[in-house]
Design a protein around this nucleic acid. Structure first.
Lengths: 154, 154
DNA sequence: CCAATCTGTAACTATGTATGTTACATGCCA
DNA sequence: TGGCATGTAACATACATAGTTACAGATTGG
């Protein structure tokens, strides 16, 4: 199962970032998530282009959120990653590789119907993802769960 | 990920079956779809258990629809195949293989939220698939498009 | 009962995709 | 300049899906 874990990794990392004020290195994040630093960089590269996170080089550098967590929806993440939730479906079927001309009308009817359905479904799911934010994920940890640096007036 | 063409293959085959009265062999169907006879049998095995199609051995045997095409929804097919439309998403992430105990609370929060979302989404998509039937697919071919064996007087 | 036809299924191969890993170039700060 | 961190290419590994071969079981017709 090469099931993509990029979405899960991205959310895990983003929630970590939402929970601290200082930048976190790829190495550190990889340790938290249970993967490799390069994988973290690869995953976060898309989110950086989407303006969700920022990265800085040099000592003390690393990754940090570019927006307030409540402004980062799961749809933003999903779009930034450039993934398709419904990617596991081959609309055209195996025959197209052999006879790209479209073997019969039935094949085209099936492909058309599936295409339409998938496009519709993608929109539907995206709308649902838009309702959830990284702040919602962080809130599940409890307000006092992790050490915050300046969240409360003292 | 290797995109599954099973759904597409199944719909293609079912539409073929909806368009003829006599049973069609796996070999013949495989030729239409552009794949192998064994693949057709593997795919249709699930649909047979679901009561959508019937198979018969021996000369003159093959596959045929077990219900009227208008009674076979895409949800029936999808369920019969035992596939998950949203299977391409790894909810837990890569860390679980290494530290199955659940490394941190964040991982569990992400997994829980994603699980909930995916379950919700699956239901949503299934409901949409229930609206489309194999008869709808066959109707896209036009009533006189394919040679029927006893549709016309003459 | 035998031969031909077709399904049912296990076992193996081939292939594509995601991830893990290594290596090296680039940028930032003291 | 030296140390730390990102950026990315290149290669290795893992795994799911599809393709293929082989053979067992079931049905039809002489």
């Amino acid at each position: 199962m090469p099931r993509s874990s990029r979405f899960s990794v991205a959310l895990h990392v983003l929630t970590h970032l939402a929970d601290t004020a200082q930048p976190l290195t790829s190495e550190r994040l990889a340790g938290c998530v249970g993967t490799n630093a390069v994988v973290v960089r690869r995953t976060l590269a898309g989110l950086r282009e989407a303006g969700l996170v920022a990265s800085s080089s040099g000592p003390g550098g690393g990754w940090s959120l570019a927006r307030d967590p409540s402004r980062v929806s799961l749809q933003d993440v999903y779009t930034g990653l450039g993934e398709r939730l419904l990617n596991g479906i081959d609309v055209t079927g195996p025959g197209v590789r052999r006879a790209p001309g479209g073997s019969c009308r039935i094949q085209r009817a099936v492909a058309g119907t599936l295409d339409e359905f998938l496009a519709d479904a993608e929109q539907l799911l995206a709308a649902r993802l838009a309702r959830i934010t990284v702040a919602d994920l962080a809130a599940q940890l409890g307000p006092s769960a992790l050490p915050r640096h300046h969240s409360r007036a003292g």
